[in-house]
């Protein structure tokens, strides 16, 4: 094509656009932006309505019934690790992973003396579980009946975002199932088969771990966390996950 021919062609540059056409284009751009933004904002909405005036929800505001939870009577733990052994055996936990473990902290008592406190940890089955929010394929969710955070290994793509998101280091990747594995309060291995307690609770000789339905005022867990003059705390409350594993000393 020669220069002369080119000069006679209709220009396609921006000066040929009419004002109406520009406006229409802008509207489409805004609509597309709005649609995407709407979706992005959705991603910030919490998974479940959660209630938490303090670390223990007010009686009657538990989202589930049974609302399974665990109370750990921290100072009674002697680190015998029978809970860990029972968990490994019951849930086929490989040697490189754990669903529950026991941490150790040291507190100074002054004059070169200190006390050692053992802290059992496990999945906190949070009311606002960050792991559930971030999973791209809904491979993990809050069980609608019990509030237990469960996994479907066949949906897990192994992106490990749930592991990054969990404030409690409660998840690990299990090579055998090619999926992230975690504590499910023994829902699959025991509760669904009529047992009333997870294996770790059953195995504990010091009655450290108390399991039950927080929505039932007659349950032991309810009575422990609502007892007068009792200090109740949770781990990492600042993350806003609203955990269902409570710690007490009494």
């Amino acid at each position: 094509m020669k220069i002369d021919d080119l000069e006679q062609m209709e220009s396609e540059d921006l000066s040929t656009l009419s004002s109406a056409e520009r406006r229409r284009f802008l509207k489409i751009g805004l609509a597309v932006t709005g649609m995407y933004l709407g979706g992005s904002i959705l991603s910030l909405i919490s998974v479940k309505n959660a209630h938490a005036a303090g670390v223990v929800p007010e009686a009657g505001t538990y989202p589930y019934n049974p609302h399974y939870s665990m109370v750990l009577r921290e100072h009674l733990c002697i680190d015998c690790e029978r809970c860990k052994e029972a968990c490994v055996k019951t849930n086929h936990v490989p040697s490189y992973g754990f669903r529950t473990t026991i941490l150790e902290k040291r507190r100074s008592l002054g004059e070169d003396k200190s006390e050692t406190i053992f802290v059992p940890v496990l999945c906190n089955h949070c009311n606002r579980p960050p792991c559930v929010r971030v999973c791209p394929t809904t491979a993990t969710w809050k069980d609608e009946k019990t509030g237990i955070v469960v996994m479907d290994p066949s949906r897990c793509i192994g992106c490990k975002t749930c592991m990054a998101a969990c404030p409690y280091n409660a998840r690990y990747f299990k090579e055998e199932t090619r999926a992230v594995d975690k504590c499910d309060f023994c829902l699959q291995s025991r509760l669904s088969k009529g047992e009333t307690n997870p294996a770790c609770v059953e195995a504990c000789p010091a009655d450290v771990r108390v399991f039950g339905n927080l929505a039932d005022p007659k349950s032991r867990v309810f009575q422990l966390v609502h007892a007068p003059d009792t200090m109740v705390w949770v781990l990492r409350p600042e993350t806003g996950a609203v955990p269902n594993v409570f710690y007490i000393n009494s």
Binding site: S43, P136, R155, I157, G158
Partner: peptide, 16 residues
Amino acid sequence: RMPLGVILYPNVTSNI
């Protein structure tokens, strides 16, 4: 598992 997973089991709260 990803191509079908993100279509069949989408999670609109997930930034990923």
